[in-house]
Amino acid sequence: MIPVVSDLAPLVCAVLLAVTGAGKLFGRRTAQVAADTVLVRVLGDARRAALALRTIGGVEVALAAALLAAPTAVVPGAATAALGLGFTGYLGYARATAPESSCGCSAKQEGPIGLLSFSRAGLVVLGGAAAATADTSWWSRIADRPAVSTVFLVAATVVVGALTADLDRLWLLPLRRARIRLFGNPLPASAGPAGQVPVAASVELLERSLAWQAASPVVRSALLDSWDDEGWRVLRFAGVYEDMRGAHPVSVLFALDRTATIDTTENPAVRVSLIDDETEELVPADVLAPVPSRTALPLAT
Protein backbone atom coordinates (compact mmCIF):
# COMPACT_ATOMS: atom_id res chain seq x y z
CA MET A 1 0.00 0.00 0.00
CA ILE A 2 0.93 3.64 -0.31
CA PRO A 3 3.29 4.29 2.62
CA VAL A 4 1.60 7.49 3.81
CA VAL A 5 -1.77 5.77 3.93
CA SER A 6 -0.62 2.63 5.68
CA ASP A 7 1.63 4.50 8.11
CA LEU A 8 -1.04 7.00 9.13
CA ALA A 9 -3.91 4.46 9.09
CA PRO A 10 -3.18 3.43 12.72
CA LEU A 11 -3.63 7.04 13.84
CA VAL A 12 -6.90 7.49 11.95
CA CYS A 13 -8.29 4.14 13.08
CA ALA A 14 -7.20 4.79 16.66
CA VAL A 15 -8.98 8.14 16.80
CA LEU A 16 -12.14 6.69 15.25
CA LEU A 17 -12.16 3.67 17.57
CA ALA A 18 -11.33 5.78 20.62
CA VAL A 19 -14.29 8.09 19.96
CA THR A 20 -16.85 5.39 19.22
CA GLY A 21 -15.44 3.04 21.87
CA ALA A 22 -15.45 5.68 24.60
CA GLY A 23 -18.98 6.62 23.57
CA LYS A 24 -20.11 3.04 24.12
CA LEU A 25 -18.02 2.35 27.20
CA PHE A 26 -18.72 5.51 29.17
CA GLY A 27 -21.87 6.83 27.50
CA ARG A 28 -24.73 7.42 29.91
CA ARG A 29 -27.23 6.40 27.25
CA THR A 30 -25.56 3.13 26.26
CA ALA A 31 -28.21 1.05 28.02
CA GLN A 32 -30.95 2.99 26.28
CA VAL A 33 -29.28 2.61 22.89
CA ALA A 34 -28.64 -1.08 23.48
CA ALA A 35 -32.31 -1.63 24.13
CA ASP A 36 -33.06 -0.65 20.53
CA THR A 37 -30.45 -2.90 18.92
CA VAL A 38 -30.81 -6.40 17.63
CA LEU A 39 -28.46 -7.51 20.45
CA VAL A 40 -31.45 -7.64 22.76
CA ARG A 41 -32.98 -10.42 20.75
CA VAL A 42 -29.71 -12.28 20.32
CA LEU A 43 -28.71 -12.12 23.97
CA GLY A 44 -32.14 -12.37 25.51
CA ASP A 45 -32.40 -9.23 27.59
CA ALA A 46 -31.50 -5.58 27.54
CA ARG A 47 -29.05 -5.69 30.46
CA ARG A 48 -26.85 -8.22 28.68
CA ALA A 49 -27.13 -6.24 25.45
CA ALA A 50 -25.90 -3.12 27.24
CA LEU A 51 -23.05 -5.11 28.80
CA ALA A 52 -22.10 -6.47 25.36
CA LEU A 53 -22.14 -2.99 23.89
CA ARG A 54 -19.94 -1.69 26.70
CA THR A 55 -17.54 -4.63 26.27
CA ILE A 56 -17.20 -3.90 22.57
CA GLY A 57 -16.57 -0.26 23.52
CA GLY A 58 -13.80 -1.44 25.86
CA VAL A 59 -12.26 -3.56 23.10
CA GLU A 60 -12.36 -0.59 20.74
CA VAL A 61 -10.62 1.66 23.28
CA ALA A 62 -7.96 -1.01 23.95
CA LEU A 63 -7.38 -1.43 20.22
CA ALA A 64 -7.09 2.32 19.82
CA ALA A 65 -4.43 2.42 22.53
CA ALA A 66 -2.55 -0.46 20.93
CA LEU A 67 -2.69 1.16 17.49
CA LEU A 68 -1.34 4.42 18.89
CA ALA A 69 1.41 2.82 20.95
CA ALA A 70 2.58 0.08 18.59
CA PRO A 71 1.71 1.26 15.08
CA THR A 72 4.18 -1.00 13.31
CA ALA A 73 3.01 -4.20 14.96
CA VAL A 74 0.77 -6.38 12.80
CA VAL A 75 -1.55 -7.60 15.56
CA PRO A 76 -3.47 -4.37 16.39
CA GLY A 77 -4.10 -3.67 12.71
CA ALA A 78 -5.23 -7.21 12.03
CA ALA A 79 -7.45 -7.14 15.11
CA THR A 80 -8.98 -3.85 13.91
CA ALA A 81 -9.73 -5.37 10.50
CA ALA A 82 -11.27 -8.39 12.23
CA LEU A 83 -13.38 -6.09 14.39
CA GLY A 84 -14.52 -4.27 11.24
CA LEU A 85 -15.47 -7.59 9.65
CA GLY A 86 -17.36 -8.46 12.82
CA PHE A 87 -19.24 -5.13 12.64
CA THR A 88 -20.12 -5.77 9.01
CA GLY A 89 -21.41 -9.23 9.81
CA TYR A 90 -23.40 -7.89 12.75
CA LEU A 91 -24.90 -5.13 10.63
CA GLY A 92 -25.76 -7.59 7.87
CA TYR A 93 -27.46 -9.87 10.37
CA ALA A 94 -29.33 -7.00 12.03
CA ARG A 95 -30.32 -5.57 8.67
CA ALA A 96 -31.68 -8.91 7.52
CA THR A 97 -33.56 -9.79 10.69
CA ALA A 98 -34.56 -6.44 12.17
CA PRO A 99 -34.03 -3.61 9.68
CA GLU A 100 -35.74 -1.12 11.98
CA SER A 101 -33.36 -1.70 14.87
CA SER A 102 -30.69 0.81 15.77
CA CYS A 103 -27.07 -0.06 14.99
CA GLY A 104 -25.69 1.26 18.25
CA CYS A 105 -22.51 2.04 16.34
CA SER A 106 -21.50 5.24 18.03
CA ALA A 107 -23.80 5.03 21.03
CA LYS A 108 -25.18 8.49 20.40
CA GLN A 109 -27.30 8.56 17.32
CA GLU A 110 -30.14 6.14 17.23
CA GLY A 111 -30.97 5.43 13.68
CA PRO A 112 -31.87 2.54 11.48
CA ILE A 113 -29.05 0.65 9.82
CA GLY A 114 -28.27 2.17 6.48
CA LEU A 115 -25.53 2.87 4.01
CA LEU A 116 -23.67 5.02 6.54
CA SER A 117 -23.35 2.18 9.04
CA PHE A 118 -21.98 -0.23 6.44
CA SER A 119 -19.57 2.35 5.04
CA ARG A 120 -18.27 2.98 8.54
CA ALA A 121 -17.74 -0.71 9.20
CA GLY A 122 -16.05 -1.09 5.80
CA LEU A 123 -13.77 1.81 6.65
CA VAL A 124 -12.70 0.03 9.84
CA VAL A 125 -11.86 -3.11 7.81
CA LEU A 126 -9.81 -1.15 5.26
CA GLY A 127 -8.15 0.97 7.94
CA GLY A 128 -7.23 -2.11 9.95
CA ALA A 129 -5.80 -3.84 6.89
CA ALA A 130 -3.77 -0.76 6.03
CA ALA A 131 -2.60 -0.38 9.62
CA ALA A 132 -1.38 -3.99 9.67
CA THR A 133 1.01 -3.21 6.82
CA ALA A 134 2.46 -0.07 8.41
CA ASP A 135 6.24 -0.21 8.58
CA THR A 136 6.98 3.23 10.01
CA SER A 137 5.41 4.72 13.13
CA TRP A 138 2.92 7.50 12.48
CA TRP A 139 4.84 10.07 14.51
CA SER A 140 8.02 9.65 12.48
CA ARG A 141 6.01 9.64 9.24
CA ILE A 142 4.41 12.97 10.21
CA ALA A 143 7.83 14.35 11.14
CA ASP A 144 9.28 13.17 7.77
CA ARG A 145 6.52 14.28 5.43
CA PRO A 146 4.47 16.94 7.27
CA ALA A 147 2.72 18.37 4.18
CA VAL A 148 1.55 15.07 2.67
CA SER A 149 0.58 13.78 6.11
CA THR A 150 -1.50 16.86 6.84
CA VAL A 151 -3.31 16.54 3.52
CA PHE A 152 -4.02 12.88 4.21
CA LEU A 153 -5.20 13.50 7.77
CA VAL A 154 -7.51 16.29 6.64
CA ALA A 155 -8.92 14.06 3.91
CA ALA A 156 -9.36 11.20 6.38
CA THR A 157 -11.10 13.51 8.84
CA VAL A 158 -13.49 14.66 6.11
CA VAL A 159 -14.28 11.07 5.07
CA VAL A 160 -14.78 9.86 8.64
CA GLY A 161 -16.81 12.95 9.48
CA ALA A 162 -19.01 12.44 6.44
CA LEU A 163 -19.67 8.88 7.53
CA THR A 164 -20.51 9.81 11.09
CA ALA A 165 -24.21 10.26 11.59
CA ASP A 166 -23.56 12.47 14.62
CA LEU A 167 -21.70 15.01 12.55
CA ASP A 168 -23.92 15.20 9.49
CA ARG A 169 -25.53 18.40 10.69
CA LEU A 170 -22.18 20.05 10.08
CA TRP A 171 -22.17 19.25 6.38
CA LEU A 172 -25.53 17.82 5.35
CA LEU A 173 -27.71 20.74 6.43
CA PRO A 174 -25.57 23.45 4.81
CA LEU A 175 -25.56 21.36 1.64
CA ARG A 176 -29.35 21.06 1.67
CA ARG A 177 -29.73 24.75 2.47
CA ALA A 178 -27.47 25.64 -0.45
CA ARG A 179 -29.53 23.46 -2.76
CA ILE A 180 -32.72 25.24 -1.73
CA ARG A 181 -31.05 28.61 -2.19
CA LEU A 182 -29.97 27.60 -5.69
CA PHE A 183 -33.07 25.81 -6.92
CA GLY A 184 -35.75 27.37 -4.77
CA ASN A 185 -37.98 25.78 -2.17
CA PRO A 186 -39.52 22.69 -3.74
CA LEU A 187 -42.64 22.84 -1.60
CA PRO A 188 -45.78 24.29 -3.18
CA ALA A 189 -46.21 28.02 -2.64
CA SER A 190 -49.94 27.58 -2.89
CA ALA A 191 -51.88 24.38 -3.35
CA GLY A 192 -55.02 25.79 -4.89
CA PRO A 193 -56.17 28.89 -6.69
CA ALA A 194 -54.89 32.13 -5.20
CA GLY A 195 -56.88 33.40 -2.26
CA GLN A 196 -58.28 29.99 -1.43
CA VAL A 197 -58.60 29.65 2.32
CA PRO A 198 -58.11 26.11 3.64
CA VAL A 199 -60.94 24.72 5.75
CA ALA A 200 -58.51 24.39 8.66
CA ALA A 201 -58.05 28.18 8.57
CA SER A 202 -61.81 28.72 8.72
CA VAL A 203 -62.05 26.34 11.67
CA GLU A 204 -59.20 28.19 13.35
CA LEU A 205 -61.04 31.47 12.90
CA LEU A 206 -64.29 29.96 14.12
CA GLU A 207 -62.69 28.55 17.26
CA ARG A 208 -61.50 32.00 18.26
CA SER A 209 -64.86 33.63 17.60
CA LEU A 210 -67.66 34.68 19.90
CA ALA A 211 -69.96 32.35 17.98
CA TRP A 212 -67.87 29.38 19.12
CA GLN A 213 -68.06 30.52 22.72
CA ALA A 214 -71.79 31.00 22.41
CA ALA A 215 -72.27 27.55 20.95
CA SER A 216 -69.91 25.83 23.37
CA PRO A 217 -72.69 24.40 25.60
CA VAL A 218 -74.19 22.70 22.57
CA VAL A 219 -71.33 21.54 20.34
CA ARG A 220 -70.04 18.07 21.17
CA SER A 221 -68.16 16.76 18.14
CA ALA A 222 -65.23 18.03 16.12
CA LEU A 223 -65.75 19.16 12.54
CA LEU A 224 -68.02 16.73 10.72
CA ASP A 225 -68.38 18.26 7.30
CA SER A 226 -67.76 21.50 5.46
CA TRP A 227 -68.75 22.98 2.14
CA ASP A 228 -68.82 26.29 0.31
CA ASP A 229 -72.05 27.86 -0.86
CA GLU A 230 -72.63 31.32 -2.30
CA GLY A 231 -69.58 32.85 -0.71
CA TRP A 232 -70.25 31.22 2.62
CA ARG A 233 -68.28 28.42 4.14
CA VAL A 234 -70.57 26.15 6.12
CA LEU A 235 -69.04 24.08 8.92
CA ARG A 236 -71.14 21.32 10.42
CA PHE A 237 -70.72 19.97 13.95
CA ALA A 238 -72.85 17.62 15.95
CA GLY A 239 -74.34 18.82 19.19
CA VAL A 240 -76.88 18.19 21.88
CA TYR A 241 -79.21 20.67 23.51
CA GLU A 242 -81.42 20.07 26.47
CA ASP A 243 -84.85 21.39 27.24
CA MET A 244 -87.74 20.29 29.41
CA ARG A 245 -88.41 17.29 27.21
CA GLY A 246 -84.85 16.00 27.44
CA ALA A 247 -81.77 16.05 25.24
CA HIS A 248 -82.02 16.44 21.49
CA PRO A 249 -79.31 15.82 18.93
CA VAL A 250 -78.76 18.76 16.63
CA SER A 251 -76.61 19.75 13.72
CA VAL A 252 -74.73 22.90 14.63
CA LEU A 253 -74.04 24.89 11.49
CA PHE A 254 -71.66 27.79 11.36
CA ALA A 255 -71.55 29.88 8.22
CA LEU A 256 -68.77 32.39 7.75
CA ASP A 257 -67.12 34.32 4.98
CA ARG A 258 -65.09 31.74 3.10
CA THR A 259 -62.26 34.19 2.47
CA ALA A 260 -61.90 35.28 6.10
CA THR A 261 -59.00 34.11 8.27
CA ILE A 262 -57.49 35.27 11.53
CA ASP A 263 -55.21 37.44 9.40
CA THR A 264 -58.09 39.41 7.90
CA THR A 265 -60.49 39.74 10.81
CA GLU A 266 -60.53 39.44 14.57
CA ASN A 267 -64.25 39.45 15.03
CA PRO A 268 -65.85 37.52 12.22
CA ALA A 269 -69.59 37.63 11.74
CA VAL A 270 -70.70 34.04 12.03
CA ARG A 271 -74.15 32.69 11.36
CA VAL A 272 -75.00 30.03 13.88
CA SER A 273 -77.94 27.75 13.48
CA LEU A 274 -79.05 24.62 15.25
CA ILE A 275 -81.13 22.16 13.34
CA ASP A 276 -82.82 19.39 15.23
CA ASP A 277 -81.70 16.07 13.75
CA GLU A 278 -85.07 14.42 14.39
CA THR A 279 -87.55 17.09 13.38
CA GLU A 280 -85.19 18.93 10.97
CA GLU A 281 -86.51 22.16 12.43
CA LEU A 282 -84.56 25.19 13.43
CA VAL A 283 -83.92 25.37 17.17
CA PRO A 284 -84.35 28.83 18.69
CA ALA A 285 -81.07 30.50 19.45
CA ASP A 286 -81.74 30.93 23.16
CA VAL A 287 -79.94 27.68 23.93
CA LEU A 288 -76.73 29.45 22.98
CA ALA A 289 -74.74 30.80 25.87
CA PRO A 290 -74.74 34.56 26.28
CA VAL A 291 -71.35 35.99 25.51
CA PRO A 292 -70.01 38.99 27.40
CA SER A 293 -69.99 42.00 25.15
CA ARG A 294 -66.61 43.12 26.34
CA THR A 295 -63.78 41.63 24.42
CA ALA A 296 -61.04 40.21 26.57
CA LEU A 297 -57.82 42.17 26.68
CA PRO A 298 -54.98 40.35 25.01
CA LEU A 299 -52.69 38.66 27.48
CA ALA A 300 -48.97 39.18 27.33
CA THR A 301 -47.25 35.85 27.16
Binding site: L210, R271, V272, I275, E280, L282, A285
Partner: peptide
Protein backbone atom coordinates in the same frame (compact mmCIF):
# COMPACT_ATOMS: atom_id res chain seq x y z
CA UNK B 1 -81.83 26.31 6.89
CA UNK B 2 -78.60 27.74 8.22
CA UNK B 3 -78.61 30.93 6.22
CA UNK B 4 -82.35 31.43 6.46
CA UNK B 5 -82.91 31.71 10.15
CA UNK B 6 -79.46 31.96 11.57
CA UNK B 7 -78.46 34.01 14.53
CA UNK B 8 -75.61 36.23 13.53
CA UNK B 9 -72.97 36.31 16.20
Amino acid sequence: AALGGATIV
